[in-house]
Amino acid sequence: MTASSSRLVAYSSSLKLTLLLFLFLGISVVLWHFTEHKLKDWLITIPLLFLAFNLITSMLTNKIFRIHGWLLLFHVGLLLLLLLIGISQVTKLIGSVEVTNGTVYDQSSAQWQQGIFHRNRLDRLQFKLEKFNINYASSHGEVVRLDTQAYITWVDEEGKVKKGVVGDRVPLKIYGYKLYTTHNKGFAPMFKWYPNQGGAVEGSVHLPAWPEHELNQANDLQIPNTPYKLWLTLKFFDPILSSTGPSIFRIPDDPLLIVRVDEKRYELQPGDFIDFPTGRLEYLGLNTWMGFQVFYDWSLPWMLGASLLALFGLAGHFWKKFAPTPWQNSLEEEEKNRWNKNN
């Protein structure tokens, strides 16, 4: 090895560098919170990559890892964990999907972010949200969300139809994806479009999540294959959730749907319709929707394994490090040193 390359190895395996990188990581994690930049995850990825590199070179060159097996095991576990975090970043998928009550999942309502090596199978999912319940209670005049149940029918990987209830901590599992119910839900006016030519189609508009966007219950509806765009909003005075007792999320008793098309304003009740030059739009009534979180990450059990392995190594290391110098030994040693000094 040349002098300059051995110096490079010495620098990159240095423990002082490790300390700097720890500091770098800590600062990065804090900075991460103060930026909305789309590349912000690199703030955390870069120090982790450097730490992994630092750790690898150190494990290859630092003799201490050959002497202390437990310490080696611990750092190998850490390295595995770093590696798995990297693999997870490129293979995982996190997304969300909104499903109208009583209808089947439609991939076009899904949004997701996936790693570059993720094999996307969201188009294969087949499930129907039969109905859902969200219970609320009151606590000191405030409404608190309790449990959620979503009644689902789905087709599993073998093509069998299954029924079940999912909700808090129990996700729907299909094709390796886990779909969790969330607190995201809202109202969904349902419509049917009868074009002058061709068959009728049904659809719904998901109004913004409720109760977070209680004061902004408005959205647009683009009628498929037409230039017609409607703006609609929902008004009701019926308190859905109670601040004095138990309540559930439900459709209000007397909702009023206000629709604007260009300059015209309509107030619709179920069964009302609006005529357009090329068809008729019927308002079927008010429904609800629920948001699901979609999650895929096969590396999770391995990450758990790696972290437990690391911890096992760490516990072993400390056990060994502390056992041979019990309290009493150092006492005696100190006595001996004092005695030696005095003589």
Binding site: V29, P171, K178
Partner: peptide, 14 residues
Amino acid sequence: DAWGRYWGWDPLET
């Protein structure tokens, strides 16, 4: 188990 994500950098986790 609870939220379908194991680490989300919320203030407490951070």
